[in-house]
Design a binder for these strands. Structure first.
Length: 121
DNA sequence: GTTCTGACTAGGA
DNA sequence: CTCCTAGCCAGAA
């Protein structure tokens, strides 16, 4: 064969870990107006307890891919938007996107998961 | 192979 | 409610 085994089309030059792709596949299923925690996403991706990986995949993943999925719908288990100096303000952008979807924040900046949490179905 | 790191988490103070 | 800690996993060096 002249093509790589499996015949899968590359689409991207950079190589993305298989587990990251699994993460993206789950994030893509989160409905508008709902949010999921990193741990929940990892679990549904078949990577139980790899919550940190979900965060890594969304943060360090290729923008071409991440920008095509509702990355803003993933927050931490406490219902808060995770902060990091390295985010360089994208945390604020995340909140804007979520509010635009109808998600409300308490004065303390918390999303009530009982109301906006995705049931995974 | 080892070591370090992090958009995490549950639990305790 | 906030702050701190130990445990966790996979990727990167």
């Amino acid at each position: 064969m002249s093509r790589s085994a499996g015949g899968r089309r590359p689409r991207l030059d950079i190589e993305v870990p298989e587990s990251w792709l699994a993460i993206y596949a789950v994030v893509r299923r989160i409905p508008k107006g709902k949010v999921a925690s990193y741990g929940q996403v990892a679990l549904l991706a078949g990577l139980p307890r790899a919550a940190r990986l979900a965060g890594t995949a969304l943060f360090h993943g290729p923008a071409e891919l991440v920008s095509k999925i509702p990355w803003q719908r993933v927050v931490n288990a406490a219902g808060r938007i995770s902060y990091s100096e390295a985010r360089n303000g994208s945390d604020h952008r995340q909140r804007e996107l979520l509010e635009k979807e109808g998600i409300e924040f308490t004065p303390a900046g918390v999303i009530r998961m009982s109301k906006y949490g995705w049931d995974g179905k």
